[in-house]
């Protein structure tokens, strides 16, 4: 697989959210607006790239049986680093994302990539894979955020585009499920036709 392939597969062919249905909790929980989705996506990308690099670096030193706990410790450390940095320099975003920041630890996407890719490939490929997968995840969250924000609060990245409130249900929990369902249906349709 070429480096470019490793990078781009995370966007469409193996997109974490739309195709593999991984990391759904933060996907639905934080995408009430485009900006929140993007913030969460980038925080996840940061953790994913670093954990992939470290896992690829130490993979031969870790006995198979304790592989999962060791990976979890590595991931949890990076998550805490993100948590602290965000609290210090982006306090507003930290407040909005709230509980979902520590929950990056249990995002199956991250442990999944550590297990399925980084523990079998070299450092450079793992870093590229993490970046591609992470940005693909961020892209999915931003798309969902944009859709929910336009329909739900009538704005695009906080810029009002039509007067009024929009269909509030899209900002609330039910709208998250429904919007994601229709986006996946649309993607299914598009990919099957081509």
């Amino acid at each position: 697989m070429s480096k470019l392939n490793i990078f781009t597969k995370g966007f469409f062919k193996e997109n974490a959210v739309f195709v593999m249905l991984l990391g759904l909790c933060p996907t639905l929980g934080t995408t009430t607006s485009a900006l929140n989705g993007l913030g969460m996506g980038l925080a996840t990308t940061f953790v994913l790239v670093l954990s992939n690099i470290v896992v690829a670096l130490v993979k031969n030193q870790i006995p198979d049986k304790v592989r999962i706990p060791a990976f979890i410790v590595i991931i949890a450390s990076f998550v805490t680093v993100v948590e602290l940095l965000m609290q210090a320099y982006l306090p507003n975003l930290f407040e909005v994302l709230g509980l979902f920041i520590p929950l990056i630890v249990v995002n199956c996407l991250i442990l999944g990539r550590a297990e399925a890719f980084a523990s079998k490939n070299n450092v450079l490929d793992s870093a590229i894979d993490g970046l591609g997968m992470g940005l693909g995840f961020a892209m999915a969250l931003t798309i969902l955020g944009v859709v929910r924000e336009i329909l739900g609060s009538g704005s695009f990245f906080n810029f009002k585009i039509y007067p009024g409130d929009g269909a509030l249900v899209f900002v609330l929990a039910p709208g998250g499920f429904i919007a994601l369902g229709f986006i996946i249906a649309l993607l299914n349709k598009l990919t099957k036709q081509s």
């Binding site: 249905l21 609330l172 039910p174 709208g175 499920f177 429904i178 369902g181 996946i184 249906a185 299914n188």
Partner: peptide
């Protein structure tokens, strides 16, 4: 087009 995952999401939305 809605079969499988998409309709599951929409159902979950209605349940919510």
């Amino acid at each position: 087009g809605m079969k499988g995952v998409p309709i599951a999401f929409v159902t979950a939305g209605l349940l919510a």
